[in-house]
Amino acid sequence: METIARLGVVGCGLMGSGIAEVAALRGIDVLAAEATREAAEAGRRRITGSLDRGVLRGKISEEVRDLALARLSFTHDLGNMADRQFVIEAVAENRDIKTNVIQTLDKVVADPRAVLATNTSSLPIVDLAVATERPEQVIGMHFFNPVPVQTLVELIPALTTAEDTLDRTRRFATEQLGKVTVQAPDRSGFVVNALLVPYLLAAVRMVESGSASAEDIDRGMELGCAHPMGPLRLLDLVGLDTAQAIADSLYDEYREPLYAPPALLRRMVAAGRLGRKSGRGFYDYSA
C-alpha cells in the first residue's frame, strides 16, 4: 500500500482545521494553507485549542498533542504545496473559489499522481475536475463536522476520476485517517445531504409558519426520534449560510420544491444570523 506521508489542506476553517488535526494525530505531516498570514495563524490557534481541549478532557496525552503540533505547519502561499502527495481543499462552499483553488493546485503540485480532493458538500465534482489538466486525479472527499468526532467520509468519484484514485483515496481515509467511507454518486448533495437537507428545511418552514417553536421542534426530534441534536440546533452548528448554499445547489440540480431554501433562512443569512459562528441563529450564543 502507498502511504501518504505529506498531506496538504487548503482552508483552516472548521472543516479544514478538523481534517488537519485528525491527520496530524494519525502521524501524517500536514501543511495547512490559508489566504493570508493572519488567517493561517487563526487556523493554528483553532487546532491548538482543539488539541488542548482533548488533553483537558483526557482524550489525548500532552505528549500526543505535542507530537501532533510538531507535524503541523502553516502557509499563506499555495506554491508551498509543491511537494504534497495528497491535497484536500476545504475552502468556502463557493464554485468560483473552489475552482480557483483546484486550478492553482493543479499547477503547483509537482507529483503527477498526487490526488486533489475537494471537501465540497454539494458541488458537482466533475465541474472542478475538468478545470484541471489532471481530471483523473480529482475526487470528492466529504468530511462531516466536527471532523475529529464524526467517523464518516463520503467518497465521490466524478466520471473522469480514475479507479486508482478512488482506491488510493479510500485506503487513505480508512487505513490512515481511521474513517469509515461510503461511495456516493456525483450528484448534488451526494447521499447524506440529499436526505438530510430536506429534513432541515422542513424544520425551518415549521418555524416560519408558526407551527412550532425552534425549542419544541428540536426537543421533539431529540426525545421522540433519539436524534443527538435537533434540526435547528444542527443548522446553527453547520452555519445557516452553508446550509443555504447547499440547498441552492440541490435545487439547481433537482428543481424540486423540497430543496428550495425557505424565505426565513434567506432572511436570517442576510441579517448575519448564521448560527454559532456569528453568535446568533435560531438560538442565541452570545453568552
Results as ranks from 00 to 15, higher is better:
E41T: 00
G54N: 08
H76F: 13
L72E: 06
S73P: 00
D77Q: 14
F74M: 01
V55W: 05
E63S: 10
A40Y: 04
E41R: 08
E41S: 01
L56G: 02
M81L: 13
A40G: 02
S50W: 00
G43F: 00
R37W: 01
L78V: 05
L69E: 10
T75V: 10
L56D: 06
R71K: 13
G79P: 15
R44I: 04
R53K: 10
N80M: 14
N80I: 06
I47M: 13
S61V: 13
L78Q: 09
D66G: 11
E62L: 04
A42W: 05
D83G: 07
A39F: 10
A42D: 13
R46Y: 10
L72G: 03
L72T: 01
T36N: 03
E38T: 08
M81T: 01
I60T: 02
D52A: 10
A42H: 13
E41H: 03
A35E: 08
L51Y: 07
G43D: 01
S61P: 15
E38S: 04
D83M: 01
R46T: 14
E63D: 12
R65D: 03
L69T: 09
A70T: 06
T75A: 08
F74L: 03
G58L: 09
R53A: 05
D66Q: 14
A35S: 05
G43C: 03
R44W: 11
E62C: 00
V55L: 05
A82V: 07
R53F: 01
E41A: 04
T48P: 00
G49C: 13
A39P: 02
A42P: 03
A82K: 14
S50E: 09
A40E: 03
G58A: 08
N80L: 15
A82C: 04
A82M: 03
D83H: 12
T36G: 04
A39G: 09
A35K: 11
L72M: 14
G54W: 02
A42Q: 14
V64I: 10
A82G: 04
G79R: 14
S50V: 01
R45A: 13
M81C: 04
D77L: 14
A70D: 15
G49R: 10
L67W: 05
S61G: 14
A70L: 14
L51G: 02
R37S: 05
R71T: 11
K59G: 14
A82F: 11
K59N: 12
D77E: 15
R65T: 01
L51M: 07
T48I: 04
R44Y: 11
G49W: 07
G58P: 09
E62A: 09
L78A: 09
A68D: 09
T75I: 12
E41D: 08
R45H: 10
R37P: 00
F74V: 01
L69A: 12
D66R: 15
K59E: 15
R57A: 11
A42Y: 03
E62F: 02
H76K: 06
L67M: 12
R53S: 06
D77M: 10
D66E: 15
